[in-house]
Amino acid sequence: MIKKSVSKKKLVRTVIQILISCVALSIVLIKTDTEKLLEIIGTANPLYLMLAFVVFNISKILNALRLNRFFRAIGLHLRELYNLQLYYLGMFYNMFLPGGIGGDGYKIYILQKNHSIKMVNVFNAVLWDRVAGVFALAFLTAVFLIPSGFAKLYTEYVPATYAVIALSYPLSWLLTRLLYKQFNSIFLITAGESILIQAAQALSAWLILLALSVPSNHIDYLAIFLVSTVAVVLPITVGGAGAREITFFYLLQPLGLDTNSGVALSLIFFAIGALSALIGMFLQGRAGEKHEKGKKNYEARV
Rank of each mutant, 00 (worst) to 15 (best):
R69P: 03
A138I: 13
E245T: 08
T14F: 15
F144M: 10
I41Q: 12
N83H: 03
F187S: 01
H77W: 08
L234C: 00
L97W: 05
A199C: 11
L84Y: 11
T259C: 15
D258E: 14
T247H: 15
K290M: 11
L127T: 14
A160L: 15
A211Q: 03
A151I: 11
A211N: 12
A138D: 02
G280Y: 06
L37F: 07
E35W: 15
I246P: 01
S26Q: 10
R286P: 00
F135C: 00
Y250W: 14
R72Q: 11
L89N: 13
F269E: 15
I101H: 14
L210C: 04
E289F: 08
Q182V: 11
L171N: 00
F282S: 05
Y87A: 01
V164Y: 15
Y82S: 08
S266C: 05
P170M: 01
L76E: 09
V263W: 03
T34S: 09
G262V: 04
F248C: 10
K152A: 04
L127M: 13
V131K: 02
Y298L: 12
L62E: 01
M119F: 07
K10P: 04
M1K: 14
V54I: 00
V164F: 13
A264D: 13
A211C: 06
A243I: 07
I108M: 14
N114F: 06
F270H: 04
A52R: 09
V15N: 06
E35C: 13
L76K: 07
A142F: 11
A166W: 12
